[in-house]
């Protein structure tokens, strides 16, 4: 039964030196482009496409992503998640990710761009086995309005839960309501316009790596304001305030490249436009 505006199911499996997509199913407003092997590592990249070009009133989307043992996948989308005006009910997006031992998921979507009066709710649940690695990035832009005024959307609510070894280990809820929160002031974006989050979970995300990352980012002296901290499991969350998509993605790119090099001996990815 098609009860969503768009649905995607995708399962990836390791076969010899290569990860293959062993099962895939999608309908209506979610589609994927044929997997691309961008380098010789055997890791495919999948780009999700929203053929309608954006989300409208009452839309519901769901993605189910399964990575079998040792499978490696890079998941992104072809363009920004655009949410148009939603006068009646909000747009909802659900995602469920299952990562088996030794698997690697890099999820680096384009920014979320919410139009004037848009209401968007995203619920992500990630089930990980110890030994799996997750890189989950998300960037919230100030949105779009005809006269260029930032923060004209109604509500953005993004909830992310990670179950690690069967237990809830991370609970992250970001709720932005510019009507009642002064986005420029203390406690909100404090003069910045873009808010990025990067959640990284994996055995190698130890305190010593955070020290290394801190020194590395200090040397890079990137614009914006960055903070990060260890989770209760091997992993960390990084948050960044920036003044442009370019600046925020620049931080993601540096950290992501460092992790790929240090942990997996992989080359940088070229998804980031900056």
């Amino acid at each position: 039964m098609k009860d969503k505006t768009g649905y995607l199911y995708l399962s990836a499996k390791k076969k010899q030196d290569k990860t293959i997509i062993d099962d895939i199913y999608f309908y209506d407003q979610l589609k994927v482009i044929k997997p691309l092997y961008l380098d010789d590592s055997g890791q495919p990249s999948i780009f999700v496409v929203n053929p309608g070009g954006g989300y409208v009133d009452g839309d519901t989307y769901r993605m189910d992503i399964r990575l079998q043992e040792n499978a490696e996948l890079l998941l992104s989308n072809q363009s920004a998640t655009t949410i148009y005006k939603t006068p009646e009910s909000c747009v909802c997006q659900e995602m469920e990710i299952v990562l088996k031992k030794g698997s690697l998921l890099e999820y680096v979507p384009d920014p979320i761009i919410a139009f004037k009066d848009a209401k968007f709710r995203q619920d992500t649940k990630i089930y990980m086995e110890p030994g799996a690695t997750l890189i989950y990035a998300e960037l919230i832009s100030p949105g779009w309005s005809p006269d260029g005024t930032p923060f004209t959307y109604d509500t953005l609510r993004l909830k992310t839960e990670v179950y690690w070894d069967g237990k809830l280990a991370v609970y992250d809820q970001v709720r932005l309501q510019p009507d009642i929160q002064n986005m420029y002031e203390t406690g909100f974006f404090e003069g910045y316009t873009h808010f990025g989050s990067m959640m990284v979970i994996g055995d190698q995300a130890a305190p010593a790596f955070l020290d290394q990352m801190y020194d590395f980012l200090e040397d890079e002296n990137l614009p914006g304001r960055i903070g990060f901290s260890m989770l209760t499991i091997p992993g960390f969350t990084l948050r960044v305030f920036a003044s442009s998509t370019q600046d925020a993605e620049g931080v993601f790119n540096k950290v992501h490249t460092l992790i790929r090099k240090e942990w997996f001996n992989k080359e940088p990815i070229y998804l980031y436009k900056y």
Binding site: Q173, V174, T186, G187, F188, F189, G227, T237, R239, F241
Partner: peptide, 19 residues
């Protein structure tokens, strides 16, 4: 369901306090 939404600024500064 409303539980735990963050103040982005406060949280960022709580993280930066470590350094």
């Amino acid at each position: 369901d409303d539980f735990g939404s963050i103040s982005p600024g406060l949280e960022l500064s709580q993280m930066r306090h470590e350094r």
